[in-house]
């Protein structure tokens, strides 16, 4: 069953910008990575799913409900982290979370657990929060009503590596709980750890959709290096993140996202 379904979605901003005839779906219990460089159209697509903007052509549905017309029914079971957190900045984080809980009429609130997990003290004014703190606030607000479907727009931006890992752990946990997740990103590493499938979008068009494993395989190169002695081999393995085996070390290099894109498109930006 497809939980999130986008069919022939078009939103033309003019000047070749927007999304064009985009189709993909996310199945129940799947984590889908929506990968693309800045300006590719990820946020635009997500705005449609969230019911913020109306499709010019094509359609978006979540659980067979129309994302534009039945938005408020979908939102009941949906958790969303915006690309840019811009909540009421006159409130403190605590006030905002309380407001959101009441506004959404949340009965069973997971807030406390989430705050501990991200070591986040929301007492200060949102206006005075750093980007990372706002991001944590966004994460807590998206998870605290225990949704079934998640939509994240570049969720780890602004988080330090430790917190990025905590977030990834949380996503993996939710995946085990059978949640459906759509996550946009412009960093391959971020999605490969969590996603079952990855869709690559560029200039508003879907370039490829493939399983994360296949994409990874296709774009990782392995090198076997033989060193003079074992000590050297071990330190080489350590320095270059390789696997040592006697004198032999295997190191892997991943293509950057841009290289992957070029693989699909050729470099047509010139």
């Amino acid at each position: 069953m497809c939980e999130i379904k986008i069919e022939h979605l078009t939103r033309n901003y003019g000047g070749g910008k927007g999304v064009f005839n985009l189709s993909f779906d996310v199945k129940h219990g799947e984590v889908f990575g929506f990968l693309g460089p800045n300006g590719a159209g990820k946020t635009t697509t997500i705005r449609h799913l969230m019911g913020f903007i109306k499709a010019q052509e094509g359609s978006c549905t979540i659980n067979d409900l129309d994302c534009w017309k039945d938005s408020e029914k979908i939102q009941l079971k949906l958790g969303y982290i915006p690309g840019e957190i811009s909540y009421f900045d006159d409130m403190s984080g605590t006030e905002f979370l309380k407001f959101t809980a009441n506004y959404r009429k949340i009965h069973h609130n997971l807030q406390k657990d989430l705050l501990e997990r991200f070591e986040f003290d929301p007492k200060i004014k949102i206006k005075k929060m750093s980007k990372g703190m706002k991001q944590k606030l966004g994460i807590v607000a998206a998870f605290m009503h225990n949704p079934d479907i998640f939509i994240f727009d570049e969720p780890t931006s602004g988080l330090d590596p430790l917190m990025q890992n905590r977030f990834i752990d949380l996503v993996i946990e939710e995946k085990k709980n059978g949640k459906t997740i759509l996550m946009s990103s412009h960093i391959f590493e971020e999605v490969e750890k969590t996603c079952d499938r990855i869709g690559i979008i560029r200039q508003g068009k879907m370039a490829a959709i493939d399983s994360a494993a296949a994409l990874k395989e296709r774009h990782v190169r392995h090198y076997n290096v033989k060193l003079e002695n074992e000590t050297l081999a071990e330190s080489f393995a350590k320095d270059f993140n390789g696997i040592s085996n006697g004198l032999n070390v295997t190191v892997s290099a991943r293509q950057s996202l841009e290289e992957i894109f070029m693989n699909y498109y050729g470099d047509d930006r010139k």
């Binding site: 938005s71 408020e72 909540y87 506004y103």
Partner: peptide, 18 residues
């Protein structure tokens, strides 16, 4: 004001009708 600064997102991304 909320549309401009984006704060309206917390009102719309919720099970509340526009």
């Amino acid at each position: 004001k909320y549309t401009e600064n984006g704060a309206i997102v917390s009102l719309i991304a919720a099970p509340v009708k526009r």
